[in-house]
Amino acid sequence: MVYLIRVPVEGSEPVLVEAADVADGIVRVARPGEVIAAAGESLQAALERLRPMAEAFVTQLSGLAHAPDEITVDFGVKVDAEAGVVIARTAAAANFSVTVKWNRAA
Rank of each mutant, 00 (worst) to 15 (best):
M1K: 15
V2N: 06
V2A: 07
Y3E: 05
P8W: 11
P8D: 15
P8G: 15
V9M: 14
E10Y: 04
E18N: 14
D21V: 13
V22H: 12
V22S: 10
V22E: 10
A23V: 07
G25Y: 04
R28M: 11
R28P: 08
A30R: 08
A30H: 04
A30G: 09
P32R: 08
P32M: 06
G33H: 05
G33D: 10
I36M: 02
A37S: 13
A37K: 06
A38M: 10
A39M: 09
A39V: 12
A39N: 06
G40C: 06
S42C: 03
Q44C: 15
A45W: 02
A46R: 01
L47P: 07
L47E: 11
E48C: 06
R49V: 14
P52Q: 10
A56W: 10
F57P: 11
V58K: 01
V58T: 03
T59I: 05
T59D: 09
Q60Y: 11
Q60I: 05
S62M: 00
S62Q: 00
G63P: 04
A65P: 11
A67K: 03
P68A: 02
I71K: 03
T72Y: 15
V73N: 03
V73P: 01
V73M: 03
F75C: 13
F75M: 14
G76R: 12
G76H: 09
G76A: 15
V77T: 04
V77P: 09
V77D: 01
K78S: 08
K78E: 07
K78N: 07
V79H: 06
A81G: 12
A81Q: 12
A83M: 14
G84W: 00
G84L: 01
V86A: 13
T90F: 00
T90I: 08
A92K: 02
A93E: 13
A94K: 06
A94I: 00
F96M: 03
F96C: 05
F96G: 04
S97H: 11
S97D: 12
T99F: 05
T99K: 12
V100M: 05
V100S: 05
V100K: 01
W102F: 09
N103T: 03
N103R: 07
R104L: 12
